[in-house]
């Protein structure tokens, strides 16, 4: 898939995943990978950025399989941001689709 597409929607997908359920890093990478193929390296920086901008909260939860894991949780600001991103995505997707639809008539 075109990396530029992926980069564009990656934020939205990550936010949506965490909105559905608090997740930790590895789990989140797995979930996002089901939707789009993504470089693991880029997920963590993205998580860091969204946390620094206070869209995510983090907390540690004990795990039976090793050291405590850092869980990400969507804040109220994060929810609003996700909604705005979804709205943008909808508008963007509709415009592109409409443009392509028009193109078909040009055959």
């Amino acid at each position: 898939m075109n990396p530029q597409f992926k980069k564009g929607v990656l934020e939205l997908i990550v936010l949506e995943c965490v909105r559905r359920k608090d997740r930790y890093g590895y789990e989140l990478v797995e979930e996002v990978s089901k939707v789009i193929d993504v470089n693991e390296g880029t997920i963590y920086p993205l998580l860091k950025r969204l946390t620094n901008e206070h869209y995510f909260e983090t907390y540690l939860r004990e795990s039976s399989e090793g050291p405590p894991r850092k869980y990400y949780h969507l804040t109220a600001a994060g929810i609003l941001y996700r909604d705005s991103l979804e709205a943008e995505w909808e508008e963007f997707q509709q415009q592109v689709s409409r443009f392509l639809e028009e193109g078909r008539t040009y055959e």
């Binding site: 590895y26 470089n39 693991e40 963590y44 860091k48 399989e65 090793g66 050291p67 850092k70």
Partner: peptide, 27 residues
Amino acid sequence: ILEEYAQHIDIKIQNGQSEEDAIRDFG
């Protein structure tokens, strides 16, 4: 940051991947 990466690598090793592969996935 480093702790998170270390944890990620550890889980991948637990799931059967080698260290090399786990790190390569990071790019």
